[in-house]
Design a protein around this nucleic acid. Structure first.
Lengths: 336, 336
DNA sequence: CTGAAAGCGCTTACAG
DNA sequence: CTGAAAGCGCTTACAG
C-alpha cells in the first residue's frame, strides 16, 4: 500500500516488468506493445498511484537530471534572484536544481562540491571562492559539465558567465563625474576575486583618465568577514576624513552598510554626499532618497549559464569553452 | 579514472566487494577484518579518490538522508533565514536539505511535494498552502515523517511548529494603545491561512477589549497576488480615509509596501503616523526612522521543527503529534 | 577472518 | 508482440 513498485504493477497487470517500463516511458509504440495491454498497464499504474523511484532511475540511467548550484550566499538578494531564474530555466528542460551557499568559505565550498558530486549531479553551476582552483581544475579534467558565474578563476580555463564589471563601475563613475562630483570615494572588500579586482581597477583607471578634474582616488578596502559595526565606523571615518562629496560602493551589502554610516552622520543625499552602489536591491529602491545603482541583468546571466551547461551535458566530448560577458545597467535615482 | 567504484577498489586490493564495504563503513572491527587488509583497503580508497555513489547507497539502504523543505518563498527574508537555520541543524545529524518555494500556489506545492516524494526524501518540513490538506493527509496516512511550520491546517492533525501569532499582534497592539494611539489601522492579506486568521483575530479582539478607548477597528485586506502598485495605492487611501494615527502590518512584505505609501504621503513617523510590522526585516532596521516590529524567533522554530522531524524518523511507528507554539518578541524602535 | 549471493527499483539490449 | 536476464553501485544477512 505504501510504496508501489514497477514489479507490483507488473504483477497486477500480469505482464513482465519490462513491458510496464516500456509502456510507462512512452515506448509502447516503438516496442509494439498491444493497445489493450498498454491501456491496462496505464490504468493500473494510475489507480495505484505508481511513480518511479527516481533514485533507481538515476542509478540505472546514469543521469540524475539534477544540476548542482553553488552560490555565495542564498540569503543575499542577488544570489536568491539568480538561483530562482536558474531554477525556472532548468525546469524547462526537465532538470531539478539543488542549491547551496559557500559563504565565500573555501572549506565549505570544497565540501559542498564533494557532496554534490557524490549525489551524482549531472552538472555544476558555480560562483567560485578564491582558492578553489584545484577542485575546479579537477572537475574540468574529469570532463564534468560546469559553468562559473559572477566571477571566474584566471588560473583555470572554464566556461563562465558574468557581467562586465569594469564597464559597470566605469559607467557609474562617469555619471558621478558628469554631475560634478570631484571627491569620489570607493568602498570595496578584500575578496581576492576577479570581479572585485575589475571593479577596483575601473575606479582607479577612471580617476586616472580624468586627472585634470580629479586629484586623487580615495579607496577604502574592508575585510570580508569583519563585524558590521566595524565596517560602518570605518566608512563613516572614510567619508569624513577624505571630505568626500560622492561615494561608490562596489557591492550591495557594502552599500547597505554605507547607508547606516550615512544615516549616523546625518548627511543629506545627494546635497552633502552622492552615492552609487554596484548591484541593485529593494532597500535602495525604498530608501529616502532612492539610491542610484548599477544593476546586473540577473535573468540573462541565469539563462545564459543554464544554456551553456546544457550544451555541455548534451555533447560531453567537446566541452564548450564559452565565456560570456553581459553589460550591466545604470539605474538613475535620487542619490546622485 | 573518472569514477571509481567499490568493485574497482576490491579488484585493486584483491578482496571482495563486501570486505571493502565493511572496512569503508567502519565495520572492520565488528566484521573482524584483519588490520593489514583493512589498512590496505583504506589506503587504496584514499589514493584513488573513491567516494560511494550516494544514489546506490540510498537505493540499497532505503534512506536518502535528505529532508525536503517546502517554504512559501525562499527569496523572502523570513523564509531564507528559516531555511538556513534548518539546514544547519539538519547537517548536524548528517542530513541534507533540498528546498523549494511554493509561492503560495497550490498546484506548485502539490507538484513539489510529489517531486520530493519521488526523490525519496526521508522527511518533510512544510509551510502548507491553504488547499493542500488532501496531500498532507495522504502523507500522514502513509506515515511519512513530516512537520508543518509557520502555519498549520485545522483540518489535518499533524505535528507543527509556529509562533504564537495571536500573542504577537496583541503585544504590538497593546504597545500602540499604551503610547496613546487611538486610530489604529490593520493591513492584512486574503490568504486563507490560520496564521493570518489568528493575527486578524488578535487585532479585532484587542480593539474590542479596549472599546472605551478605541471606537472602531479599521481593517484593510489586500489580495495576495495583486500588483504592488495597487496595494500601495490602497494603503495610502486607507491611511487617509480613516485618519489613522497608527498602522499595523500583518506581515513583512505588506510592511515594505506600506513604507512606499507612507513615503508617498510624506508622513513623518511616528508624529503623523506610527507603524508596527509583524516579522522583522533588514529594511525595517535601516529605515529612517527605524520600524518597530514583532520578531519571530526563527532559529528556535527551525531547531524545534528539525528535532520533531528527526524524532519521527527514528521511531516510525509512533508518529509524534507534537504541536509547538513559540512566543514572538516585540522589537521597539523609533516608529512608535 | 573473508567471500558469494541476494536484492534495492529501475532500464535496456537481446532473444524468441 | 512480450519476457528473461543483466546490470547500475551499493549493503547485508548468510555461510564457511
Amino acid at each position: 500500500m505504501k510504496k508501489v513498485s514497477l514489479k507490483d504493477i507488473a504483477k497486477l497487470a500480469g505482464v513482465s516488468a519490462s513491458t510496464v517500463s516500456f509502456v510507462l516511458n512512452g515506448k509502447a509504440d516503438t516496442m509494439r506493445i498491444s493497445k489493450p495491454i498498454a491501456d491496462k498497464i496505464t490504468a493500473i499504474a494510475k489507480k495505484s498511484g505508481y511513480h518511479p523511484n527516481q533514485l533507481a532511475v538515476s542509478l540505472r540511467t546514469g543521469q540524475s537530471k539534477t544540476i548542482g548550484l553553488l552560490v555565495e550566499d542564498i540569503s543575499n538578494n542577488f544570489f536568491a534572484a539568480l538561483a530562482k531564474f536558474i531554477e525556472d530555466e532548468a525546469n524547462k528542460y526537465g532538470y531539478k536544481v539543488v542549491y547551496c551557499s559557500t559563504e565565500n568559505n573555501n572549506q565549505k565550498a570544497k565540501a559542498l562540491l564533494q557532496m554534490l558530486s557524490h549525489q551524482q549531479v549531472d552538472g555544476f553551476l558555480i560562483t567560485p571562492t578564491d582558492k578553489i582552483d584545484k577542485d575546479i581544475q579537477q572537475l574540468m579534467d574529469y570532463k564534468r559539465p560546469m559553468v562559473l558565474m559572477d566571477r571566474f578563476l584566471p588560473s583555470v580555463a572554464t566556461p563562465y558567465v558574468l557581467v562586465n564589471n569594469f564597464a559597470g563601475v566605469e559607467t557609474g563613475m562617469l555619471h558621478l563625474i558628469e554631475r560634478g562630483y570631484r571627491n569620489i570615494g570607493f568602498v570595496t572588500v578584500d575578496l581576492n576575486m576577479i570581479q572585485m579586482q575589475k571593479r577596483d581597477e575601473a575606479y582607479i583607471q577612471t580617476i586616472h583618465k580624468h586627472k585634470k578634474l580629479i586629484k586623487t582616488p580615495f579607496l577604502l578596502r574592508l575585510h570580508y568577514n569583519e563585524p558590521t559595526e566595524d565596517s560602518v565606523k570605518k566608512i563613516s571615518a572614510f567619508i569624513q576624513n577624505s571630505a568626500l562629496d560622492a561615494i561608490f560602493f562596489s557591492t550591495n551589502y557594502l552599500g547597505i552598510l554605507g547607508l547606516e554610516s550615512i544615516k549616523q552622520l546625518k548627511l543629506k543625499m545627494p546635497d552633502q554626499l552622492a552615492m552609487v552602489c554596484f548591484d541593485d536591491h529593494d532597500i535602495f529602491r525604498l530608501h529616502t532618497p532612492e539610491i542610484t545603482t548599477i544593476r546586473q541583468p540577473i535573468k540573462e546571466i541565469a539563462r545564459s549559464a543554464v544554456q551553456i551547461l546544457l550544451a555541455q551535458m548534451e555533447n560531453k566530448k567537446q566541452l564548450f569553452k564559452k565565456q560570456v560577458e553581459i553589460m550591466p545597467q545604470l539605474i538613475l535615482r535620487a542619490s546622485t
